[in-house]
Amino acid sequence: MLPSRVLILMCYQCVLFLKLRNLLWATSKHDVYLMQNYSVMHWSSLLRRGKEVLNVAKPIIPTLQKHSGLVHPVSRVQISTMTVKENLMVAGGFHGELICKNLNQSGVAFCSKISTDDNAITNAVDVFRNPSGSLRVIAANNDSQVRVLDAENFASLGCFKYDWSVNNASVSPDGKLLAVLGDSTEGLIADANTGKVTGNLKGHLDYSFASAWHPNGQILATGNQDTTCRLWDIRNLSQSIAVLKGRMGAIRALRFTSDGRFLAMAEPADFVHIFDSQSGYTQSQEIDIFGEIAGVSFSPDTEALFVGVADQTYGSLLEFTRKHYYQYLDCMI
């Protein structure tokens, strides 16, 4: 059921800020992308080495020119959040920057400051396909707005304004619904195409920072400053169906496995919790490590959990492998 061993794969340092999170993504069991200072690195567990795929310390000039006037070269970007999906790497910065790079191409396809607000940190980014199959990029910013871009030409498709700073936004697996969380005790469910609010999430006691959709699209997990993760049945939002408790800090990152069996829940430092959905989230494992947590990610095959530790001395990438119990072998002994 649960991970069985830990490997320290590589050491890295990262200047950690209060809202730094989601700086780690696994695209396979052997391919992990993570921040190392001002670089996004690709770590190969097969080759046992890392390779720089994006350097944000130098001025970045996009190679794709058709951006509907949004092109603004950026440099020395302090990355605040990141995602890697559909061969597209998307990173957000502390001054409203958005950077998009196709992993199959050289150079950066798009970069710009999407907000000029004085406190315009890009808190969350996501990549998704809408119901028609078109690839989209979404960014949630501290200026209370969620922006949607076309991932082909990076033209702006919409800008949704809310009443408070948006700390997290994520799109349902079918591309129809948008979870919007931020500096409010309430969360929102909105239409992913229009941004129109269709439901409210009431129950958390403080501000929210993380969300994750179950692969079936019916369950949404939300992480909050009140040290809890709440699970919501999207078909009935009158109250949460479960409350999962952390140990000390806010819930900063949430991830489901691709089969929906496990949910990983990370605190800002020291603790990662794994819950078994088949037990109704009653069975869990607590991973106690040392250091600030920069992100968590399951491999797509569900066989590995990666945890990034951002610490000037103990910075590392940890790999936990899933342990299987072959009970059918017992009868053969």
Rank of each mutant, 00 (worst) to 15 (best):
R255A: 15
R129C: 15
G249Q: 14
N104F: 04
K323S: 08
S297K: 04
L231F: 01
Y325F: 13
I251V: 14
V53C: 06
L20Q: 10
V309T: 00
T227E: 02
S39R: 08
H67S: 10
V15D: 14
T27G: 02
P215G: 07
Q312H: 11
R322C: 08
V77N: 09
V53F: 02
D191M: 03
T227I: 03
H95Q: 13
F154M: 04
D118F: 12
R48K: 05
N236Q: 08
R235H: 13
P215A: 06
A304C: 13
F275E: 02
C159E: 07
K85G: 12
L23F: 06
G217D: 08
T321L: 05
K85H: 14
G69A: 11
Q105N: 11
S258A: 09
K113A: 07
N167C: 00
N153Y: 05
G69F: 12
D163Q: 10
G50Q: 15
D117E: 07
C159H: 08
N87T: 07
N142M: 06
E319D: 09
P3H: 04
R255K: 11
M10C: 11
A120Q: 02
G223C: 03
V137D: 06
E152L: 05
N141S: 13
R261F: 05
Y162R: 14
A57W: 11
L178Q: 02
S115L: 00
K323Y: 13
F128A: 13
V90Q: 00
S238F: 07
F290G: 06
I219A: 14
T313C: 10
N102T: 09
H67C: 15
T122M: 12
P268H: 11
S172L: 06
V148S: 06
F320G: 14
A109F: 09
L188S: 00
K323T: 10
K58N: 13
I241R: 05
L254T: 14
N216T: 13
P300R: 02
E97V: 12
S316G: 10
R21M: 03
M10T: 15
D311H: 03
N37R: 15
K161Q: 12
Y328L: 11
A151T: 03
V108P: 02
S28V: 06
R261G: 03
Y38L: 03
M1I: 12
A210T: 11
N167V: 00
T63K: 15
K323C: 08
G133E: 00
I61N: 14
I289N: 11
S144A: 09
F271S: 05
Y328P: 12
R261Y: 06
L178D: 00
D206C: 13
V53M: 05
A269G: 04
A310W: 03
L318S: 04
I219K: 06
L237G: 08
Q218E: 07
H72D: 04
S184T: 01
Q105D: 11
D163G: 13
V15N: 10
R235A: 07
W25D: 10
T185W: 04
L24T: 05
Q36I: 02
N168K: 15
G92P: 00
T228Y: 01
I234T: 15
T198M: 08
G50P: 06
S258H: 11
L188D: 01
K51G: 08
S132N: 12
L254S: 07
A253G: 10
A169G: 03
L205T: 12
M265W: 02
L231I: 02
Y326N: 15
G223R: 02
